[in-house]
Nucleic acid binder design. Structure first.
Ligand code: MN
Ligand code: MN
Ligand code: ZN
Ligand code: ZN
Lengths: 148, 148
DNA sequence: TATATAGTTGTAATAATTATAAACTTGAAA
DNA sequence: TTTCAAGTTTATAATTATTACAACTATATA
């Protein structure tokens, strides 16, 4: 998957276009997600940018992410049991999580599900598709080992 | 979707076959899930059977569910942000959650995803497909109202 | 009966998230 | 420039699902 390269002024514009004032905290948070497409948790974001903004509060990260989700800029991934991950809300895609290394991979998949706007009369507005297993790299490392 | 009707001795056998001793607590917990296909949370299960087993501890519900998941009898649904739901591990199916009434519906869907055993070299072992929107009933109730 | 093992229970600990209220920023009006 | 109000950030406390732990209980075997 290839992503558009966002500049800092793209990020500012994403915020202002949604009526969110582009404070330094909000810009750094969104910039982190946009530049590191790693489906981060709140803690990953907080730890990554607290050096740039030493006064940063984790509450601000929570508040900002919630706001960005509400505005549709981000989506939440419930792929882990105990923590929410965040992702750019781009075209629908599928997530694969490796149970060995924990990495999460993006995949485009022209799945019929994504086409359907309703199922049995129920209106579909959102999709989450999570795949779990062992990734290419971990399969290679584990070659011949039991359990893989 | 139509389910097999489990008797109490089916439930006992499911446990013994997996090497789990069929204590009264474990049987009641599994019986609840099997008889009420409502994708319950720990609290739903606990509150439903604590009248039959007044000494029941919520820890036992947690322990039993974890064990049943490990043995492959149940699966966990991460469809809600803050709580785990449990489901019989039957043939792969799709879950639809209504954002109005909160109900979760099962759907069979012959999706190509369920056929694939690998994607880009990664070995797929498990699938979770969650759909979100407004269910048939809530659409009907909300007819002509804004927001629906 | 004595004893070991597995199962259950109540309580405490953990950890992610949310609530709250005080402090700070900012930008416009006076 | 000063004042003021609205919006934003911060630190702390509260909430809540889940897990850890240790004591207690039931069961089976010798
Ligand atoms: Mn993604
Ligand atoms: Mn189901
Ligand atoms: Zn891996
Ligand atoms: Zn509904």
């Amino acid at each position: 998957m290839k992503y558009k390269n966002y500049t800092i002024s793209d990020i500012k514009e994403m915020l202002t276009q949604q009526g969110i004032k582009p404070s330094i905290q909000r810009m750094k948070i969104l910039e982190y997600i946009v530049k590191n497409r790693n489906h981060p948790t709140v803690d990953m974001i907080y730890n990554a940018i607290k050096f740039e903004i030493p006064t940063l509060s984790k509450t601000t990260v929570y508040n900002t992410l919630k706001e960005l989700v509400k505005k549709g800029i981000l989506i939440e991934l419930l792929i882990d049991e105990n923590v929410i991950r965040y992702d750019m809300n781009i075209s629908p895609h599928v997530h694969f999580k490796c149970k060995i290394c924990g990495k999460i991979y993006d995949y485009d998949m022209n799945c019929e599900i994504f086409e359907k706007k309703e199922i049995d009369g129920n209106r579909i507005e959102k999709y989450n598709v999570y795949l779990f297993g062992i990734c290419k790299e971990c399969l290679k490392k584990g070659d011949g080992r039991h359990g893989n």
